[in-house]
């Protein structure tokens, strides 16, 4: 699993809960999301993380609930919880960096190095 996936699958993001959530709140949130996913509510299909929007599935919700039931794992996830920064603020500067001189897509064609 990549670093992005590890962080993106953080149970607190999946269940949309603060780190102070009690065990009962975790169970209630999990059941709520499972119910919403079962009836196909579009709002339940995605969740927000500091690295962007990700797809929420019933398997992910169940895994998140299981992770937060284990105190050893829960404390690890708490340390990676970050109140959502809008992804645009994280990405805006990156996009600016990515802008460079435009390519010349016809270069190979002009020299006859591409299929006609």
């Amino acid at each position: 699993m990549s670093a992005v996936d590890r962080w993106g699958d953080n149970p607190f993001f999946v269940l949309d809960l603060p780190v102070t959530a009690t065990r009962a709140e975790v169970e209630r949130a999990g059941q709520k999301w499972l119910g919403m996913l079962e009836v196909g509510m579009s709002r339940a299909a995605i969740y927000t993380t500091p690295l962007g929007v990700r797809a929420r599935t019933p398997e992910l919700v169940r895994a998140a609930m299981a992770e937060l039931r284990d105190p050893e794992r829960r404390i690890g996830h708490e340390l990676w919880h970050l109140e959502h920064e809008p992804p645009s603020t994280l990405d805006a500067e990156d996009d600016a960096d990515a802008e460079g001189p435009e390519p010349e897509p016809a270069a190979l064609r002009i020299l006859g190095w591409s299929r006609p």
Partner: peptide
């Protein structure tokens, strides 16, 4: 030419 098509100036 190939680098130019990618913009790898």
């Amino acid at each position: 030419a190939e680098a130019a098509t990618r913009g790898a100036w």
